[in-house]
Design a protein around this nucleic acid. Structure first.
Lengths: 220, 220
DNA sequence: ATAACTTGTTCTCCTTTTGTTCTTGTTGTA
DNA sequence: TACAACAAGAACAAAAGGAGAACAAGTTAT
């Protein structure tokens, strides 16, 4: 899945990611988020690092944060009204629910649906972040209790901790759902199926497209 | 669409919190609350501290408190009109969802929650019939991909086909989630766990309380 | 009416949180 | 190799928040 945002400004990738996060989650914050809260939500450990990105968004007029006041980061009306708003964000905002994107099978690209549809899923199996749903094809995660035909809820995110289950894009070609272990010189994708072996890659071969946060199954 | 908790640009976090409290509880006070009452309600020990926040709300025109008169704190028409949509309306509008009843563990009665709660689940994992949700304790269905802590959606029903997964009440005592096989002179409950054995009962010992129609899991 | 009590107000002193700026180091790319 | 993007963390000042004392104006009880 490509980046859902169109780049109308000279934003860096990270700035774009943060803007995307702010737009998709603007209704999820009771109060305008502080830098620390955003760090946690986005996966940064340093306020200082985040601040630089926010500063870039402020310069672009997309975000405002009262100088020196401790009142959090807010979107400007500009960023809310321009077409820089991602399709995904718009749809979530309009109350369609969580987008059901398509199917994921080991060794193939994600197969998108012709007509995107939406499901209303409980908050218990999704996160504050921007989430989407895939249907699983195959048995590569069977020991983890993820079966052929199950739906998985994925938080859109480009990083992961070791051991998390991720949607990984291999060589910009094949999408797959696996446990991930990332080391400086190697990234390992580990299926949860006794009959399958872990696969080893160069870190740059792997692009994380999301992290598993929930799962559903129908017995009908 | 927006609720009571909407951000006001000029307010600090505490001011916003207090304003939210006043709005959501405006009908719960017989008289306008005093500073001391608000301290108790909000969790402050010092009137002086609270007064500073109230002063900020007064300056913002959102609250009024007759100067020096001992009349308590009340909302202005401004704050009442700009925040008229209550969260309650939202809940009524959306319906209550599917009841979350309690937990089910092999070999124990269903443990009901004191405060029943509700989840909104997608139609894909429930049926037209009346459904409820249980949280699974234990590993008796692990080979079926139902893990400890998973939620299961149960259609309330007193009969089942052979092979279906049911909530079965054994001897009017213990509730359990198992595959069921019903024969004229015997009812068998079959766990989905290689380490556990099927259990055989007289038909009259078993009472079916529902049939599994869906399952959910959180990886948060 | 007087005393006792409430209540809003102001003040000082204090801790925690937050935004900001820096330096250091890593990584990916032209 | 050089450069931009990015991350982590230290350090700092201002803002936000909290406790409590003191006081004056109103209210209540005796």
């Amino acid at each position: 899945m490509e980046n859902v945002l169109q780049n109308n400004y000279n934003l860096t990738r990270k700035q774009q990611e943060i803007l995307n996060f702010l737009i998709t989650n603007k209704d999820n914050f009771i109060q305008a988020p502080t830098l620390n809260e955003l760090c946690v939500a986005i996966g940064l450990k340093s306020r200082g690092s985040l601040h630089k990105h926010i500063q870039g968004l402020i310069n672009a007029g997309l975000v405002e944060a009262p100088n020196r006041k401790q009142r959090g980061v807010r979107l400007t009306s500009l960023s809310l009204s321009t077409n820089s708003t991602s399709e995904l964000a718009k749809q979530v905002d309009e109350g369609y629910g969580t987008p059901f994107v398509g199917t994921i099978a080991a060794g193939s690209p994600i197969e998108a649906l012709e007509n995107k549809s939406y499901m209303h899923i409980p908050n218990e199996i999704k996160t504050e972040g921007s989430c989407y749903i895939l249907q699983v094809k195959g048995d590569s995660m069977i020991d983890e209790g993820i079966f052929n035909g199950d739906w998985v809820i994925i938080e859109q995110r480009s990083y992961a901790k070791n051991g998390e289950i991720v949607v990984a894009l291999v060589d910009k070609m094949d999408a797959t759902l696996k446990h991930i272990e990332q080391y400086p010189h190697e990234t390992v994708l580990i299926p949860a199926n006794k009959n399958m072996k872990a696969m080893h890659f160069q870190p740059q071969q792997i692009e994380i497209q999301g992290v598993l946060v929930g799962q559903m199954r129908s017995y009908k």
